[in-house]
Amino acid sequence: MAENKEFWRWTEYSWRDENKDWRGAAIITAGIDVGSVSSQAVIMADGELYAFNNTRTGSNSPDSANKAIEGALAGTGLTLENINFIVGTGYGRVNVPFAHKAVTEIACHARGANFMGGSEIRTILDMGGQDCKAIHCDEKGKVTNFKMNDKCAAGTGRGMEVMADLLEVPITEVGDLSFQVEEEPPPVSSTCVVFAKSEAMALLRDGWKKEKVLAAYCSAMAHRVSSLLDSVGVQEKFFITGGIAKNRGVVERLEKELGVKAVKTKIDSQIAGALGAALFAKTLFEKQQAKSVA
């Protein structure tokens, strides 16, 4: 019997800036993004990125939020009590037990992208696990227009997981493999993951290689999200957040279709929402303090 591998699975991990010490910071804030597929916790010291954790969302939001914050706190010597303000965001934002406030993921992604990609970012595409968002923002990272799709799996990480499982390709290798084709095949049906899956099975039966099917699927996905972006318009500079931002199979095809390159950063694209939440937390905490002084 074939081994039952989970090809969609990606590595959960924590990161910490070893050169920083939170003890010298005046304000410590945290953002928790409980998404439908992944959860992140970001800790910021005086508005600078200090530590984060990226984990798979479990069956309930409070546990996932706890797991993420514990992962980010681990090894720092920080405890929850040291954090001045915590903002929850994402699909499970109202179920983060230790958060002081909930902010929508749209506002947080815009704020996070503004931090990660700079104040010139005007258009953000967030390709999440179960949704896809096109956002416009101003130089402060404030949302001016947004359109999101969370009803349909086409154009989401979940759709890519379905395909990775079907083709038995680890999800992190999808991007590179999709370029191992002699010629770019036409995209599969970009409209519905269910139909794309049956189309992919038919193509495999017809002798297509996995790489070619992946290429066809990646370009269908690029096409799908580009039509969401087109409906709000792409103003430069352009930034991509979410898990799919790590999949060059989709990103490069999307850039080609749009004729626009996305700004790249070394910070993990999946933490944009939690990072934005931590930034909101800082603003909210400062407001609160200003109020109590006055």
């Binding site: 001016t144 947004f146 009803k151 409906s231």
Partner: peptide, 16 residues
């Protein structure tokens, strides 16, 4: 802000 609430599926775009 222009807030678009709704979704796209295979059959079309449905936003308010």
């Amino acid at each position: 802000m222009i807030a678009n609430y709704g979704y796209t599926d295979g059959s079309g775009e449905y936003y308010i």
